[in-house]
């Protein structure tokens, strides 16, 4: 219990005091995860929509595979990315190991299947509604995909949020490829893991509380945006 009250007190004083180290860690966490989510969106939205609207042999297999990849273990992704970018790996020449870029790559691999699989579901439902009208209007396939993505934009915001939740909360992948280096690759989750292993539970918990507040704020913002969209009948 003492740990909890100390943690709350510490979290409060860290936030109020705008601790420079803490701000650096939060900023890097956000930079890495937001970049990964943006990249995943660039790949995942069109990929999910493409699988939703096109008919090709193996489409069901692709959908099942995508759903299965949603549960990719972060440590496995971390390990694979590590092998690819370590000095002996095929991408070793890029010198990415233990850099924020490596962390972004790993999280992008983790988040892309989540965004693509959920996008497929959302777009497929909307496609059922629009399909006859679009075929009647002879809309070209690339315009169909773009229109479906645009018209489901508010649902896709929630999809993006699911991806962001996964990215900001995972520790396995970033700790392997980032190395948790102070002032370089230390993010919220790796810092929590480190402080816990050092026995500084209050600081670890304080960081955890800040992480939760961050997640809550992002969720609340998206919820507000979706509600206003629903009022406008755009969602």
């Amino acid at each position: 219990m003492q740990d909890f009250s100390a943690a709350f007190g510490l979290a409060f004083s860290l936030i109020i005091g705008a601790d420079a180290d803490l701000i650096e860690i939060i900023a890097l966490s956000l930079r890495v995860s937001i970049s990964a989510v943006l990249l995943s969106g660039l790949i995942g939205f069109p990929l999910g929509a493409l699988i939703a609207v096109t008919r090709f042999p193996g489409r069901q297999v692709a959908a099942v595979l995508l759903n299965a990849l949603m549960g990719l273990p972060p440590v496995v992704v971390g390990l694979l990315v590590y092998m690819a970018i370590s000095r002996a790996g095929p991408l070793g020449w890029m010198n990415l190991l233990y850099s924020p870029a490596a962390m972004i790559i790993a999280q992008t691999i983790l988040v892309t299947p989540i965004i693509a699989a959920l996008t497929r579901q959302v777009v497929e439902d909307m496609h059922k509604e629009y399909d006859e009208q679009f075929r009647s209007l002879c809309i070209a396939p690339h315009r169909v995909i773009a229109a479906l993505i645009w018209d489901s934009r508010y649902s896709l915001l929630t999809v993006t949020l699911a991806g962001f939740g996964r990215a900001i909360a995972e520790v396995g992948a970033v700790i392997i490829v980032g190395g948790n280096i102070d002032h370089l690759t230390r993010v919220m989750t790796t810092a929590i893991a480190l402080e816990t292993s050092k026995g500084d539970l209050a600081l670890a918990l304080a960081l955890g509380i800040i992480l939760l507040i961050l997640a809550l704020s992002v969720n609340a913002a998206v919820y507000g945006l979706r509600s206003s969209a629903r009022r406008l009948a755009y969602a």
Partner: peptide, 20 residues
């Protein structure tokens, strides 16, 4: 074919309007 369909327009019983 698409050529003939492109020169026709169909209005459905339940209008399909886009979320715009």
């Amino acid at each position: 074919g698409p050529d003939t369909r492109r020169r026709q327009a169909l209005v459905f019983q339940k209008p399909v309007l886009m979320r715009r």
